[in-house]
Amino acid sequence: MKREIPLLITSIAGIVFAVSFFIPHWPFGDAENIFGDWMSVVSAFAIWLGMFNLAEVSLRKVIRKSEGWNYALIVIGSMLLMLVIGFSSVYHAINTDTPHMDPGTGLKWMYDYVFSPLSATMFAMLAFFVASASYRAFRARSLEATLLLVTAFFVMVGRVPLLDPILVWAGITDFAFFSAVADWIMTYPNAAGQRAIMIGIALGITSSSLRIILGIERSHIGGDA
């Protein structure tokens, strides 16, 4: 029963969602809405579930002094700090009838001066990782890698909006075609490749969904693993 009930729920939900695409009204359209509402409710409770899980795992690490317990301590401290500031900002907002993220509130300050810069820092690291990954990917070790290198050269150079005008200005008009070549690569070979991948993905999702709906695929609930 432990596996049959989740399988049954999965099958019913899967069939309802599939059929409601073609019959978007009662009973299927309504059932889809109900499942959507359930998902929202479960997700809302899941935030607490996640928070308690993080606190539990981190606290256990600190108590047992496991490897990296000091990081777990920072996690707990940060979580408590944000909770205190968040709740106090909301309390203040309710008392003064103002939005809790107004400038001047603690929550807004933490968001602007701690959260956003940290996120931006992580995102900014992407630029360096693109450079290092490109260096490895564009080494001409084989015919395919060489083709990739040549293509990448044209796309990167063609995407620089100043190169063609500079070539025209310098009187080298015969070579001012990089933008056109880059556009052609992106519009035809690149789009064709992407669409082929998308068709494969669509078929893969259809087949995978059928396996799950029919109960053939059950490894995600531990069956036949």
Binding site: I197, M198, G200, I201, L203, G204, I205, S207, S208, L210, R211, I216, E217, S219, D224
Partner: peptide, 22 residues
Amino acid sequence: IGEELFAASAYLSEDPKQMGSL
């Protein structure tokens, strides 16, 4: 790449029913 992600489970399971879906 793409569809291979969805085929992976069937492929790894070596279950004829799942492979038939591929």
